[in-house]
Nucleic acid binder design. Structure first.
Length: 313
DNA sequence: AAGTACAACAACCGCGGACCG
DNA sequence: TCGGTCCGCGGTTGTTGTACT
């Protein structure tokens, strides 16, 4: 025996709600409350599924909802809670008055995930990508590590070029030995890009410089110590993308962070920091060590109990 | 001005747990 | 204890608005 449908699918309307429907639903709920969602659409004169009514009310019509932009403080709370709770949007939303789980989820998927990725932080684990790569590397045999490293370089390079040039990119790896397959640890790379237009010389100069810089960065991992130098100074460019909240990204001199971590796997824990908001002041933010907040043994990242609006179970 | 790509938001869907008789 | 029903959650898809070419 299957699950019975929540409503008769044929007779219910779907899609965007009209102002008239909103008014009907709001008026009915103002008078009768939200008991029994199944009956609400029928009694309110709506050709909608009860589920759809509930969603419309909880996500949009409820009078206590905030509809504006998320503040920096709200974003910080989401990131911090997500690092511990994962995708438990309803629990996270419970800490943000006026925000719904749908709001939080959408904001995470459209903005915060990208911000973290842009900072070199994996939005799923909240660890630096370099750290993840190091963890993966410890589980693989050296040849597999080499292949993984090369594949990752390719992905990163593609994405960086795409972001930087916003033009069609066609990248070719070329080994100095033309007979050798590209995956055999090339000593040099030749990056070429196809542009859809050549009418802007200045723009192309810039792009060429970017490509050259990337090529150099990819080719050489020279002259630095094996120890990553985690940047305790929070003024890096990456954090500028996330005002009010800072993961300190590792600084490896001229090396790519992940490649350095591959060489120093298990060697040193990153010491990254986060600026957290004062309870009320947006302007003044204290700095705490995130290793205690995001580490495996963190106690809900030292969050003072009065930071939480609702108890977390 | 038109077409395209992308971002943001709104809504839907299916599942699982809670509740109740 | 069990089955039926309802509600809430999280993932996914659809729609709209905006920027860019």
């Amino acid at each position: 025996m299957g699950r019975i449908p929540c409503c008769e699918k044929e007779s219910v309307k779907k899609g965007q709600w009209t102002p008239e429907e909103d008014h009907k639903l709001s008026s009915y709920i103002a008078q009768h409350g939200t008991r029994n969602w199944r009956l609400i659409p029928k009694n309110a004169g709506l050709q909608r599924c009860g589920k759809s009514c509930r969603l419309r009310w909880t996500n949009y019509l409820r009078p206590d909802l905030k509809h504006g932009q998320f503040s920096d403080t709200e974003e910080q709370i989401i990131v911090r809670l997500h690092s511990v709770l994962g995708n438990r949007w309803s629990v996270i939303a419970a800490q943000l008055p006026g925000r719904t789980d749908n709001d939080v989820k959408n904001h995470w998927n459209t903005k915060l995930k990208k911000k973290l990725s842009g900072m070199g932080i994996d939005p799923v684990t909240h660890k630096p990508y370099s750290h993840l790569m190091a963890e993966i590397a410890t589980t693989l045999a050296p040849p597999q590590v080499a292949n993984l490293a090369e594949a990752t370089l390719g992905c990163l390079k593609d994405e960086m070029l795409h972001l930087l040039t916003k033009k069609h990119i066609d990248i070719q790896f070329q080994s100095p030995n033309s007979h050798a397959p590209p995956q055999t640890s090339p000593n040099s790379y030749n990056i070429t890009s196809k542009h859809e237009s050549n009418d802007d010389d200045d723009d192309d100069d810039t792009i060429e410089k970017i490509k050259l810089g990337l090529s150099r960065a990819i080719i050489h991992e020279p002259h630095t110590t094996n120890k990553p130098c985690w940047d305790a100074n929070m003024n890096g460019a990456s954090s500028a993308n996330f005002p009010g909240f800072h993961y300190a990204l590792p600084s490896f001199g001229h090396e790519s962070p992940w490649s350095q971590s591959m060489c120093t796997a298990g060697d040193q824990q990153p010491q990254f920091h986060s600026k957290l908001p004062d309870n009320d002041s947006e302007g003044e933010k204290d700095t705490r060590n995130v290793s205690t907040m995001f580490g495996p043994d963190c106690d809900l990242w030292d969050l003072p109990s009065n930071d939480l609006i609702n108890p977390l179970v």
